[in-house]
């Protein structure tokens, strides 16, 4: 793209209020605004064969994301960033419960990939108190695999979470993960395996990753936050991470890496997850998501 084309593209995007609050790379792969519907975001169901009983318990707890107006008992619908609906992901009301929503794509070019989204989180407002340490974490991950002709076949899963609280302590820091659980065969046909990459262990602090996010002053008021995460599909390394006004150093970031699997070539899955720290539902809201690439 020459400078004139780049300037034209920027002018077009900045004249569109929905896109001008993102900084996408030249090619927009998806732009998901939940005022348009679910935009391909679905439930992360665990692997199984012959019986649902084969599903690992971590996955069995997952349920469907919802389109939410962020309704509150004390004032009504909050609404989304600039519309009515946001995507809501809710846990069950059990300490440590998690939920995950996923979008399943494949990639056509190994190169720079940018993820941007606007988000907020709150516990279910079952108590008339601030409840700022009730949501354990919110986060996101890619589930990636190289192409079938690539020499360096691998499955790579970059994970980042905002650890809001742990065991009642209001922690507020970003963490990453480079290990998953042991891979377990599922069923009897030797075609399916499973591992629980969101197991509570093995999270590591992102260096310099402490951040105090705006939480507001009662459990029903929310404020939207911005995240931008850059990842290079060629090198399979993170190249940048921003949240609101903060720019974080990702030199120490590392994804989960494992051998390539037989059915996942060029996989580009993106998932969001939420965990609760107490026996109360935790809600993770996403207003809109832009994934873009440099091609």
């Amino acid at each position: 793209m020459n400078p004139d084309q780049h300037a034209l593209l920027s002018a077009i995007r900045q004249s569109d209020p929905k896109l001008s609050r993102f900084d996408p790379l030249p090619r927009i792969i998806t732009f998901d605004d939940f005022d348009r519907g679910f935009c391909g975001w679905t439930q992360l169901v665990g692997n199984y064969e012959h019986s649902l009983d084969a599903m690992l318990p971590g996955y069995a707890q997952h349920s469907m994301a919802m389109l939410s107006t962020l309704p509150q008992w004390d004032f009504g619908s909050h609404g989304s960033f600039d519309g009515t609906y946001a995507l809501k992901l809710a846990t069950k009301p059990r300490e440590g419960a998690q939920n995950v929503t996923v979008k399943r794509l494949t990639f056509r070019r190994r190169g720079p990939l940018r993820l941007e989204f606007y988000f907020t989180f709150k516990p279910e407002a079952t108590e008339m108190r601030l409840s700022e340490a009730d949501v354990r974490s919110i986060g996101f991950l890619y589930d990636l695999q190289t192409g079938d002709q690539d020499q360096d076949g691998a499955r790579i899963m970059p994970h980042l979470r905002f650890l809001n609280a742990m065991d009642g302590e209001h922690v507020q820091k970003w963490q990453f993960k480079r290990r998953t659980t042991e891979v377990k065969p599922i069923g009897t046909e030797n075609k399916t395996i499973s591992h629980y990459h969101l197991a509570p262990q093995d999270w590591e602090d992102l260096p310099g990753g402490s951040q105090k996010l705006c939480y507001n002053e009662i459990p029903t008021k929310i404020n939207w936050h911005y995240v931008c995460f850059d990842f290079d599909l060629e090198t399979m390394q993170a190249t940048g991470f921003r949240c609101n006004d903060r720019v974080f150093d990702v030199a120490g970031f590392d994804p989960i890496r494992m051998p390539a699997m037989r059915n996942l070539w060029c996989m580009l899955n993106l998932a969001f997850f939420v965990e609760t720290d107490v026996a109360k539902r935790a809600n993770f809201y996403i207003d809109s998501i832009c994934i873009s690439g440099d091609f």
Binding site: V45, L52, D53, A60, M64, M66, L67, P71, K92, R281
Partner: peptide, 19 residues
């Protein structure tokens, strides 16, 4: 939307709130 999957129900039960 699958709102309960492979859940064993006995006694008082309810599905999760669905918005």
């Amino acid at each position: 939307a699958v709102i309960a999957r492979n859940e064993t129900w006995a006694g008082k039960v309810a599905t999760e709130p669905h918005e």
